[in-house]
Amino acid sequence: MTCPTCGSHEISKNGTTRRGKQNYKCRDCHRQFVEDPQWKPKDKDTLSLVDLLLLEKIPLAGIARVTGVSNSWLQHYVNDSYEAVPKTAEVIPKAKGKMKVQMDELWSFVDNKGNKQWVWLAIDADTREVIGCHIGNRSRESAIALWQSIPGVYRQCAKVYTDYWEAYVDVIPSKRHIAVGKESGLTSYIERLNNTLRQRISRLVRKTLSFSRKLENHIGAIWMFIHEYNRQIREKLAEKEDPIFFSVLY
């Protein structure tokens, strides 16, 4: 018998586990272990597959069935992953100049439809990057949180296009705020992003059984998708050799 930690063969019996299995102890590193343990650490391929599936419109029960992991393990893994997700958008740095930003909000809920949570989003109309996000109610305070979540250069220079929701009027400087209707086409990119979110994040589907029961996981799932969405945009800009991307590098 070999110690799984240090490889030593100096092993002694050390009683039994609460399930009746023979317990062993390494005399060199003092590691305790059993033969053929029921719980084994997940391999890298399984973890990578779970990470990819979390970005698709698949409920956690479906991910557990596909990957063969237990529901309890998956829930703990998801909780830890969502807690570790950065809650700030990572975007291509921009110099001061002409910029266009589109803002909008979409309705969602946590645990039950009486607990409404609005996803406030801001995107760069030129690169299509998500530059800011806030999840909360539909109040002026949430509009302020969205405005503060976008990089400072946008708050200083950008023209901001929104719908006619009154919270935007109180927060965005009037000289750079333009309220428009959907027929104008000036908020089409952000409205398309809203559709993408509902198609890709099962928690945001209007009629779903995959809704979040914890607000923290709801927020983490949205931010995880935003980071992947922005990463794909940066890759596309690099492949196209877009001057917006390369102006930052050189």
Score class of each variant (00 low, 15 high):
His218Leu: 04
Lys159Cys: 08
Ala95Asn: 06
His76Ala: 03
Tyr189Asp: 04
Lys87Ser: 08
Leu186Pro: 02
Thr208Tyr: 07
Lys100Ile: 06
Val153Lys: 01
Lys159Asn: 07
Val78Gly: 09
Asp43Trp: 13
Thr67Ser: 06
Ser48His: 15
Leu49Glu: 14
Ala84Asp: 15
Gly220Pro: 13
Ser210Ala: 15
Leu60Asn: 07
Leu146Tyr: 00
Lys116Cys: 06
Ser48Val: 10
Thr46Gly: 06
Phe225Lys: 02
Asp51Arg: 12
Ile222Glu: 02
Ser184Thr: 15
Arg18Asp: 08
His218Met: 04
Lys236Phe: 02
Asp51Thr: 14
Thr67Leu: 09
Ala179Ser: 12
Val110Ile: 09
His227Phe: 09
Leu53Lys: 05
Ser210Met: 09
His9Phe: 10
Glu10His: 13
Leu197Asp: 02
Arg198Ala: 05
Ile190Lys: 02
Ile222Ser: 05
Lys113Asn: 03
Arg18Gly: 15
Val85Lys: 07
Glu166Leu: 08
Glu166Arg: 11
Trp107Val: 07
Thr46Asn: 12
Glu235Ile: 13
Ile92Asn: 03
Arg200Pro: 04
Leu60Thr: 07
Leu52Met: 11
Arg192Gln: 09
Phe109His: 12
Pro59Asp: 11
Tyr24Gln: 14
Asp104Glu: 04
Val101Cys: 07
Asn23Trp: 03
Ile201Asp: 01
Glu235Ala: 15
Cys26Thr: 01
Thr127Cys: 00
Glu191Asn: 06
Ile135His: 01
Ile172Arg: 02
Ala158Ile: 04
Gly97Asn: 08
Lys236Ser: 15
Ser184Leu: 13
Val248Phe: 14
Tyr82Cys: 15
Glu35Ala: 14
Cys26Ser: 04
Ile233Glu: 00
Thr88Cys: 02
Val171Cys: 04
Phe225Arg: 02
Ala122Asp: 01
Arg27Ala: 08
